[in-house]
Simulated assay, not measured.
Amino acid sequence: MTPDEHHVDPQVLARARARVLGAPSQPAADPVPPGLTAASDGDRVWLLPAWPDGATPALLEEYDTAPMPLDRAGQARRVLAAALRCCWTRPDDAPWPSGDAQVTDVLEVYAGMSRGDADLARRWATGELRRLADTGWLLVDETAGTVRTGPRTALWHEDTLASLRDLLRRLPAPPASRPEAAAP
């Protein structure tokens, strides 16, 4: 066998690693490996797969290469929407990087979107927050009890955000921004 027969395209390898490992971070000064895109918030850079042009989420799923496999995709999307509602406080700006929001606020927004037992909804949402953090959609600091948008949101193209902005405006407001929260 020749060395070329053992060569794996670096972009294919980078996408495979990102599917398995999520979005690893590194110091901003380190070089970005081939096949990856960097999403920086200043001090750190998160490494994300560079998907081929025109590769929409539907096309990636059709070929069984979805960038983020989820067990309960619908629930995860709702938890992500609740987190975006709380973290992405300036929706006319890009979603990445966002400010921090309290995890408890995200859980309250999610519970307000759900029907049924609010405590059960919060428990389910807590698990989904962790899974979304593991896959780079959110950054959760469990010690501080905060969440912010993850580096994968840096890949959203501006022309795809209008419907998301409309959806977020219709979701319940986070407790910290409700008028009754500001009352003494």
Score class of each variant (00 low, 15 high):
77 R>P: 00
161 L>D: 00
99 G>L: 06
106 V>Q: 03
107 L>C: 03
140 V>G: 01
48 L>H: 06
131 R>K: 13
139 L>V: 15
119 D>F: 04
174 P>H: 09
134 D>I: 00
174 P>K: 11
58 A>H: 09
121 A>K: 02
37 T>Y: 09
63 Y>R: 15
49 P>A: 15
108 E>T: 14
49 P>R: 08
19 R>L: 15
18 A>D: 08
127 G>T: 04
13 L>N: 05
175 P>T: 07
73 A>M: 07
170 R>C: 08
40 S>F: 01
130 R>C: 07
173 A>I: 03
21 L>G: 10
94 A>G: 12
133 A>T: 12
1 M>I: 07
151 P>Q: 04
59 L>E: 11
184 P>M: 10
150 G>F: 01
72 R>F: 13
84 L>M: 10
4 D>Y: 09
67 P>D: 00
172 P>D: 06
81 A>R: 08
33 P>S: 10
10 P>V: 08
169 R>V: 09
116 G>S: 06
74 G>W: 14
31 P>Q: 11
78 R>I: 02
42 G>I: 03
182 A>K: 13
88 W>E: 04
42 G>T: 01
87 C>R: 02
141 D>T: 04
150 G>E: 06
26 Q>P: 01
146 T>W: 08
51 W>L: 15
184 P>N: 08
146 T>H: 09
133 A>Q: 08
51 W>P: 00
144 A>Q: 09
143 T>I: 07
126 T>R: 13
7 H>W: 14
103 V>D: 01
121 A>C: 02
5 E>W: 07
135 T>K: 08
95 P>T: 02
23 A>P: 07
101 A>D: 04
183 A>R: 15
42 G>C: 03
60 L>S: 02
63 Y>G: 12
37 T>Q: 13
113 M>L: 11
102 Q>C: 06
137 W>V: 05
165 R>N: 02
177 S>N: 09
33 P>Q: 13
117 D>I: 06
18 A>N: 11
65 T>K: 07
31 P>I: 08
29 A>Y: 09
95 P>W: 05
129 L>F: 03
17 R>F: 11
44 R>S: 11
166 D>T: 13
53 D>Q: 14
103 V>G: 01
67 P>G: 00
48 L>A: 05
135 T>V: 12
163 S>F: 10
125 A>E: 03
53 D>H: 10
70 L>D: 05
184 P>T: 11
75 Q>Y: 10
75 Q>I: 15
111 A>V: 06
72 R>P: 00
36 L>D: 07
5 E>S: 12
74 G>F: 10
109 V>R: 00
57 P>N: 08
12 V>I: 13
57 P>R: 09
55 A>E: 14
137 W>E: 04
87 C>H: 06
71 D>H: 11
92 D>P: 00
34 P>D: 13
45 V>R: 15
107 L>P: 00
28 A>Q: 14
140 V>A: 15
177 S>Q: 15
152 R>A: 06
47 L>E: 07
174 P>A: 15
114 S>W: 01
132 L>V: 01
9 D>H: 06
66 A>E: 14
28 A>M: 05
12 V>D: 12
97 P>M: 04
45 V>N: 10
63 Y>P: 00
127 G>D: 09
44 R>C: 02
113 M>H: 04
102 Q>K: 14
54 G>E: 10
84 L>N: 03
72 R>C: 08
97 P>Y: 02
104 T>Y: 01
